[in-house]
Write a protein that binds this DNA or RNA. Structure first.
Length: 456
DNA sequence: ATACATACC
DNA sequence: TACTGGTATGTAT
């Protein structure tokens, strides 16, 4: 059922092991069926199905010659990508476990051991691990969560507390990489290559022992290396971080960092260690919660790690792309590679490039902060409104908040975009390009009202 | 250039 | 009864 794949739980996510998926799916469906939200999901599912059909019919008429030619091009492209593979950096993805919920359980001890959801009847932003056992998830409406777990306690978010905890976590991360890239309050990428290169033998001696930290293969193979533990060096005397021993050292460093984060915040953080952001991110999910994973800086190890990796685990492949690929019998990275000729012919160059890089584990290892933002705005969902003046009020208020933010952050913009959602969850976007960059509230308001009136 | 879709937290 | 909000980016026309 195509709709179910859109609204049901994602089976790969953490905390799902003990969930009875059929039962929770049934609850979710029975609560959604007949609602305007569900109808819209059905509409979108049909649209995806249509996309798949077009793709399949294009696939059906591909000649052997075309496929052979595409295979040759894909193969050449793979060789090109291999020349870009960079194993030299030690990238870490840190991800706090059930962050908002963990902060609440820390600050409100009476909630410990009970299932909690952060948010309200309309929507949850986080579910505690206790709640996840019942199938309660992030981005689930509270009223459905309550049906899955009647004892669920809904907790209003306290963003100031989360921001404070986030600052504490980031202060620890900054000790290891002052240029770390934060993704959200609870997630960040670090490049600890330079930090590790600077470690003195005294520093190394302070690190937690490998055996308490790493996965068996890393432990065995790192210990069987010829030089002394933690002291792998190349001919120039610099520490070689791409060896298994170097990775074992990285695992100890990251364990120390996670311990420090736990000491200062009482929160647990999971981490992935690899040679680029994509692999580090997949890694941080492997041993969640309160775990870490280290992927050796080695092509064969990376390909072996990815071979059976479900496509959905790749950051950037969501429910829709997962389904499209599944219809083409592609469910893991190995299949992604094997079907590269087909992908080359069916998808855009950008998508093909992305699939190939994902399947090979070749991605960016840049963890510097992104240069500048590209958009800023506000949106809000409100009860059904039909009167023009009411809609104008809402629009003007959102313009006001946006203009205020732009002034505070000293930003200018040249395009004004109005987003409208109807009661049946259809979304419309209307935008205009202004003659010049501006942050002027009246200018933004006039542009937005103009767009609004076009739709009334 | 515009509209819409997908993805992420 | 009830399904977010903010930002980036890809696809289609």
């Amino acid at each position: 059922d195509a709709v179910l794949s859109r609204i049901s739980l994602c089976p790969h996510k953490a905390g799902m092991d003990s969930v009875n998926k059929n039962k929770t799916d049934e609850v979710i469906r029975s609560m959604s069926e007949g609602s305007r939200f569900y109808d819209n999901e059905r509409r979108k599912a049909a649209q995806t199905a249509q996309r798949v059909q077009v793709m399949k019919s294009r696939a059906a008429v591909l000649s052997t010659g075309a496929l052979q030619q595409a295979e040759a091009m894909a193969s050449a492209f793979e060789r090109q990508l291999e020349t870009e593979r960079d194993l030299s950096r030690v990238i870490v993805h840190c991800d706090a476990d059930a962050f908002y919920a963990a902060v609440e359980l820390r600050d409100q001890p009476h909630l410990r051991g009970k299932p909690i959801g952060i948010g309200g009847i309309g929507m949850l932003s986080t579910a505690s691990y206790e709640a996840r056992k019942f199938g309660v998830r992030s981005a689930m409406p509270g009223y459905i969560a309550l049906r899955l777990c009647p004892e669920l306690i809904l907790v209003k978010p306290r963003f100031h507390a989360y921001e404070a905890a986030s600052r504490q976590l980031q202060a620890v991360m900054a000790q290891y990489d002052p240029n770390f890239r934060s993704v959200s309050l609870d997630e960040a990428y670090l490049d600890i290559t330079d930090y590790m290169a600077r470690l003195t033998p005294g520093d190394v001696a302070q690190l937690p022992p490998l055996t308490t930290v790493a996965d068996p293969p890393l432990v065995q193979e790192a210990n069987s290396a010829d030089s002394k533990p933690g002291m792998a060096t190349d001919s120039a005397g610099a520490r070689n971080l791409t060896t298994l021993e170097g990775r074992a050292l990285a695992a100890r460093v990251v364990h120390q960092m996670r311990t420090r984060m736990h000491e200062t915040t009482q929160l647990t953080v999971s981490a992935g260690i690899a040679c680029n952001r994509m692999l580090a991110k997949i890694g941080s999910d492997q041993n969640k919660p309160d775990g870490q994973f280290c992927l050796p800086a080695d092509r064969a190890a990376i390909l072996a790690f990815l071979a059976n990796m479900p496509t959905r685990k790749i950051p950037g492949i969501g429910k829709v792309t997962e389904q499209i690929l599944r219809e083409l019998d592609i469910t893991n990275c190995q299949a992604l590679l094997q079907q590269r000729a087909l992908l080359k012919l069916l998808f855009t160059p950008i998508s093909f490039d992305f699939f190939m890089r994902s399947a090979l584990g070749i991605a960016s290892n840049n963890t510097r902060k992104r240069s500048e933002r590209k958009s800023i705005g506000h949106e809000t969902t409100f009860r059904e409104l039909n009167q023009v003046p009411d809609l104008e009020d809402k629009c003007l208020h959102l313009c006001h908040k946006t203009a205020l933010d732009m002034e505070r952050k000293a930003l200018l913009g040249r395009s004004v975009c109005l987003k409208l959602k109807t009661v049946d969850f259809k979304v419309k976007q209307r935008s205009v390009l202004l003659p010049a960059h501006t942050a002027d509230e009246p200018v933004i308001k006039r542009a937005a009202l103009g767009l609004l009136h076009r739709e009334l």
